[in-house]
């Protein structure tokens, strides 16, 4: 049960993290942050969030591990296969009209969905003229994404997703298996640039034809959602495409009138001006 005091302690902890390290979790949805902090409190045997704040301020290593706990999101290759199907049928024809294609994948976590995009682009004959900028707040997950190494045990599930997503080849074309892991093919990696970017505090990252940011906004409160959607609007070219997660919408935001639905059900939007 959360008491008033405990909530105050959490507010102080998040403020301390921001003041000391610049990571801003003050506008994240509370319930999820609280759950993650509670797990950390239990696993680190600390008596309170005030004690955690002290440790955060004086032990960088502890902060680093807490940051990972607060920011890691789990994903999978071709998560929501129908989304990738819609990209192929409705968005690829738009992308084909550009000589060079810049894609910004914001909040890419460990990279599964970025490689999915690279595979899709290759099958549509677009990878050679594309560049994908994949960013995340967390440098540790970015390092993992860059390696492109995934557990072999996941491949069965990913292969099913790939096929449901309209994949035209054998999924095994895209990785090399060794022991209990697979490594993604170099020709995919060559088209991805991984960089650290914090949506809560950093500005425009690039001028993109397509921005993909899926299941990141659900972690933010309304205010931060609006700020980030504004950032996306400013980072897109005219008529650029914005793809959100299947439970995210632009409808109730400050920017509802700046976009039209391209594929409503899959939350794919087009910027109109």
């Amino acid at each position: 049960m959360s008491s008033i005091n405990e909530n105050i302690e959490i507010i102080c902890l998040l403020e301390g993290i921001y003041q000391k390290y610049g990571y801003d979790f003050r506008n994240y949805s509370q319930a999820s942050v609280r759950r993650r902090l509670k797990l950390k409190l239990n696993s680190s045997n600390l008596p309170s969030y005030s004690a955690m704040l002290h440790k955060v301020l004086y032990e960088k290593d502890f902060f680093d591990s807490l940051l990972l706990d607060l920011t890691i999101n789990v994903t999978e290759m071709f998560r929501d296969p129908t989304f990738y199907k819609a990209l192929r049928s409705d968005i690829v024809p738009i992308l084909k009209t550009y000589p060079h294609i810049k894609i910004w994948h914001a909040g890419c976590s460990t990279g599964e969905e970025v490689y999915s995009m690279a595979i899709l682009l290759e099958e549509e004959g677009l990878l050679k003229r594309s560049l994908i900028y994949a960013t995340d707040i967390n440098e540790l997950v970015l390092a993992k994404a860059k390696e492109g190494i995934f557990p072999l045990e996941k491949i069965k599930e990913y292969t099913t997703n790939y096929q449901r997503a309209g994949g035209t080849e054998s999924f095994a074309e895209y990785y090399t298996a060794s022991y209990d892991a697979v490594i993604m093919k170099k020709r995919l990696k060559d088209k991805i640039v991984f960089s650290q970017h914090n949506l809560a505090t950093d500005g425009i990252f690039t001028e993109a034809h397509l921005i993909v940011c899926r299941n990141v906004l659900i972690y933010f409160n309304k205010e931060l959602q609006n700020k980030v959607l504004g950032l996306f609007k400013d980072s897109l070219i005219r008529k650029g495409v914005l793809a959100l997660g299947s439970k995210e919408t632009i409808k109730f935001s400050n920017y509802a009138n700046d976009f039209i639905e391209l594929v409503g059900k899959e939350k794919i939007y087009g910027k109109i001006r």
Binding site: S29, A31, Y219
Partner: peptide, 12 residues
């Protein structure tokens, strides 16, 4: 459920 009785979804 958030304290203000709104809903949150996560992919934790």
């Amino acid at each position: 459920i958030e304290d203000d009785k709104t809903l949150s979804l996560t992919i934790d």
